[in-house]
Amino acid sequence: MQPLDDLIKPGLRVLFCGINPGLVSAATGHHFARPGNRFWPALHLAGFTPRLLKPAEQGEILDLGLGITNVVDRPSARADELSKAEFRAGGENLVRKVLEFEPDWLAVVGITAYRDAFSLPKATIGRQDRTIGSTRVWVLPNPSGLNAHYTLPKLAGVFGDLRTAAALPDLTGSAA
């Protein structure tokens, strides 16, 4: 299976960073494509998008100042199939991308992935003290349906906190 292409360009407001592509995403070429993944609904409910986008419409987020990459490029059925070494190498690669493209914010979607990629075992959800160059860092919960601790409304609320911190408008009312 091939890794997914990044949705990235210079000047993004927020670069979302998944853990790694799942098998459905790798097969379709679309980020967060597995049915039951709540990334796209959370993104919309938090006000980042004017309507609920389907994974196949992922390219539309670039026009909204948003992008997507992954910590680890290798597709797998589950994130726990990835090694600590893959996470550390992925963290180094992610730093290079962030320094090259300079998004305002990097939002890592998955606290364990962030902790492992950057060797920060005590990191918590939310805004981080560290920056990468001038890019501020935020950690979001994993939107996988397997993460039952976060309901969709709770997930959307945490995504909304990032949107507010990034000073982005709430686009949910603009599709009426």
Rank of each mutant, 00 (worst) to 15 (best):
D6M: 11
D6E: 09
D6W: 02
L7T: 06
I8N: 00
K9I: 05
P10H: 11
L12T: 12
L12E: 06
V14Y: 07
L15C: 09
F16W: 08
C17F: 04
C17M: 13
C17R: 05
C17A: 15
C17L: 12
G18Q: 06
G18N: 08
N20F: 07
P21E: 05
L23E: 09
V24I: 15
S25R: 03
S25W: 02
A26T: 02
A26N: 01
A26H: 04
A27Y: 04
A27C: 00
T28L: 13
T28I: 02
T28K: 14
G29N: 01
G29A: 01
G29R: 01
H31L: 01
A33W: 11
R34D: 05
P35R: 15
G36Q: 05
G36S: 12
F39E: 12
F39M: 13
W40L: 06
W40I: 06
P41Y: 09
A42R: 11
L43N: 07
L45G: 02
L45T: 02
A46F: 10
A46V: 06
A46K: 12
G47Y: 07
G47L: 07
F48Q: 07
F48L: 09
T49A: 14
P50L: 01
P50W: 06
L52E: 07
L53M: 07
K54P: 00
K54W: 03
K54H: 14
P55A: 10
A56N: 07
E57G: 12
E57I: 11
Q58Y: 04
Q58T: 04
Q58A: 14
G59V: 01
E60G: 11
E60S: 04
I61P: 09
L62N: 03
D63P: 00
L64P: 05
L64Q: 14
G65K: 08
L66V: 01
L66M: 06
G67P: 09
G67A: 12
I68W: 05
T69F: 01
T69H: 00
N70Y: 01
V71N: 01
V72G: 02
V72A: 05
D73W: 04
S76A: 15
A77N: 14
A77R: 15
R78P: 00
A79L: 03
D80E: 13
D80M: 05
D80S: 11
L82I: 13
S83N: 14
K84I: 08
K84V: 10
F87R: 04
F87L: 02
F87V: 04
F87G: 08
R88G: 00
A89T: 05
G90V: 07
G90D: 09
G90C: 06
E92H: 13
E92Y: 03
N93H: 06
